[in-house]
């Protein structure tokens, strides 16, 4: 199922000479090489990957190279110019420097969330699917519980509660709290998917063989079952990055997200929401960078899904 790929992504069309021999060798190649090959043929995904790497480099190293430090002020509300390509904001800070810093926080949060939610979701999902019985019932009811309790209440407790804030690092820095919150909310879907996959994988012959050989539960789950779900895990983790960037922005908008002295692209947009008509660059530059990040990540995730999917080999009807 190619979601957006060009026809080039379908490997069943060996038209040029060089392609034929490569295609014939497919079986002899290692699986990950085949996947890599399919991924690199996916144009949109490659563009996405390049774009994402450039954005990440810009976010984490751009500050070292850019002439204006993020603490320096100039005149307020300068429109975009050669000296300030994205203009200056309502306090006179250079927007390029602000974007770099905001993107740094946004990416930091998103990657933290992707890792955290994937680890929790995979471990709990695999446990529920493999152990079944009361473990499964417990984990499933826990998921129901989180679905039913309004997420914003949990967010408000974490953001407001002074005890939580002091544990997570003083000085008013709260990006970690927001990241924790998102990570604790977003594992539900991956846990459900992994549970379903493990439920069917545990009945397979190779698992039975491992069990007959006396492998421990831990070994069966982590060495034999989970490697068969790695495609779903990687695709989900990738897409979680895009989701986290957008959710963090939405939280900032309703005042339950990242707060000063930390910043993020979402916070920048919501602080500038009233500048939309008078000083549009203040609103649209962080907006543009959010869209670029999530678009590139979505393209990568899509390309990965196609690269992992063996049904790619089938000729389309």
């Amino acid at each position: 199922m190619t979601e957006i790929g060009s026809p080039v992504a379908a490997p069943a069309a060996p038209t040029t000479g060089g392609e034929v021999s490569q295609f014939d060798n497919t079986a002899a190649k290692k699986q990950w090489q085949v996947i890599l090959k399919r991924f690199t043929r996916h144009k949109a995904a490659l563009v996405g990957l390049v774009m994402f790497v450039l954005l990440a480099l810009f976010a984490f190293f751009g500050g070292l190279l850019w002439k204006h430090p993020y603490t320096e002020t100039d005149r307020r509300y300068l429109p975009p110019s050669g000296d300030h390509p994205f203009g200056t904001d309502r306090l006179g800070f250079d927007m390029v420097a602000q974007i770099i810093r905001g993107m740094q926080f946004s990416l930091q949060i998103a990657i933290f969330v992707a890792v955290l939610s994937t680890v929790i979701g995979v471990v709990l999902g695999a446990l529920a699917g493999y152990m079944r019985g009361w473990v499964d019932a417990l984990i499933s009811r826990f998921i129901d519980l989180i679905l039913v309790i309004p997420g914003l209440v949990i967010a408000a407790v974490l953001v407001r509660n002074s005890f939580v804030a002091s544990v997570a690092g003083g000085g008013g820095s709260n990006w970690l709290i927001v990241a924790l919150y998102l990570g604790l909310i977003m594992w539900l879907s991956i846990a459900r998917v992994i549970r379903g996959m493990v439920l069917s994988l545990r009945e397979k012959e190779f698992v039975e063989a491992a069990r007959a050989l006396g492998a421990s539960t831990f070994r069966i789950v982590f060495r034999h079952i989970l490697p068969n779900t790695v495609d779903v895990i990687i695709v989900n983790a990738t897409l979680a990055i895009a989701q986290a960037v957008l959710l963090e922005a939405a939280l900032s908008f309703i005042g339950l997200g990242v707060q000063s002295p930390d910043t993020s692209l979402g916070l920048m947009i919501s602080l500038n929401k009233n500048e939309l008509t008078l000083h549009p660059w203040l609103f649209f530059t962080p907006f543009l960078f959010i869209v670029l990040i999530s678009l590139s990540v979505n393209f990568i995730g899509d390309g990965l899904r196609d690269a992992f999917d063996p049904r790619q080999k089938r000729v389309k009807a």
């Binding site: 957008l246 939405a250 979402g266 939309l276 609103f283 907006f287 959010i290 869209v291 999530s294």
Partner: peptide, 14 residues
């Protein structure tokens, strides 16, 4: 894909 990648509140504000 474009719709997926935009923060909803920005769309609403615009």
């Amino acid at each position: 894909f474009a719709m997926f990648s935009m923060p909803l509140f920005c769309v609403a504000l615009v």
